[in-house]
């Protein structure tokens, strides 16, 4: 009974958020025109121009960059923790990773602003506040998610596979990359998808380092604005159609997240079937 109630509350919350988003966002979207809204490249609330294409692209670029940075490092760390690290190293690394997961995103943002951005400004073209900075920072932020989920997947692979490969004369590396990783593939993909979800929804840290110009970036050294940044930066003062357009941005973001979680459950289901 208590469980049913608890479950009902979370479902109710999701339903309410859905209703709120769609009820407020869809009318604005229709008023602007769906193609103009989704594919328009000019965002000028002052002249009633609400094209969020640069922000959609921004979110995708930043997320892709985060994946490029975070996923290889995360998976290699997971492999290291799962098979190579001695218990002493693991006992230092594991709490470190947990701590990484617990750091508030504004603190990450600070780190990005004080360390990453000046570094990029000093060594590369542009002002530092950039797609690159956001990608690198998000890449670090998704590490704990990727590491934890991928490590669980790797740990779940029977030890006998690994031993069987070694017993045939395979090196540890070959046993890991040819037997262990393929056996854990669906779990590792799930780790990537969760990382994507975390990256695309992240707001605070991105706002602090991404530059936030609502235009299509031409290089990784230019600033970008993500959908989340768009909402959080303008919500405070927006009214009427502007406000509706921001909520409609939330609708688009929501659809993205929904697709990601569908993908996640599809991968998980496939993994269980195998």
């Amino acid at each position: 009974m208590l469980f049913t109630l608890a479950a009902a509350i979370s479902i109710l919350a999701v339903a309410l958020i859905c209703v709120f988003l769609f009820a407020n966002g869809l009318p604005a979207m229709f008023q602007i025109g769906i193609p103009e809204f989704l594919l328009g490249t000019t965002w000028k609330p002052g002249s009633d121009m609400y094209g969020i294409f640069p922000m959609i692209v921004g979110s995708i670029y930043v997320t892709a960059g985060a994946i490029l940075v975070g996923v290889p490092a995360g998976i290699l760390t997971a492999i290291y923790l799962s098979r190579f690290a001695g218990s002493r190293v693991a006992s230092v690394l594991r709490p470190g990773i947990e701590l990484l997961a617990g750091i508030p995103s504004v603190v990450y943002g600070f780190f990005g602003l004080m360390v990453l951005v000046p570094f990029i400004r000093a060594t590369m073209p542009g002002r530092g506040l950039s797609l690159l900075a956001a990608s690198m920072l998000l890449g670090i932020m998704i590490l704990p998610t990727v590491i934890t989920v991928a490590k669980n997947a790797l740990d779940a692979v029977p030890k006998s596979y690994y031993e069987g490969a070694l017993a045939l004369g395979a090196t540890r590396e070959r046993a890991v990359f040819r037997i262990l990783v393929p056996a854990a593939f669906s779990g590792i993909m799930a780790a990537v998808v969760l990382g994507v979800g975390r990256a695309i929804g992240e707001t605070m840290a991105v706002v602090m380092v991404a530059g936030n110009q609502p235009v299509m970036p031409n290089s990784i050294f230019e600033g970008v604005r993500t959908m989340t940044a768009n909402i959080v930066m303008e919500m405070g003062y927006a009214a009427d159609l502007h406000r509706g357009a921001l909520i409609a941005t939330g609708v688009v973001l929501f659809v993205f997240i929904m697709l990601i979680s569908l993908l996640f459950s599809a991968i998980k289901k496939r993994g269980e079937e195998r």
Partner: peptide, 20 residues
């Protein structure tokens, strides 16, 4: 060691075919 394990093969108590 990898030469050794090629020359000295092992079959375990529980069958352990790879998932492939």
């Amino acid at each position: 060691v990898n030469d050794l394990r090629r020359r000295v093969g092992m079959v375990f108590q529980q069958p352990n075919p790879f998932p492939m």
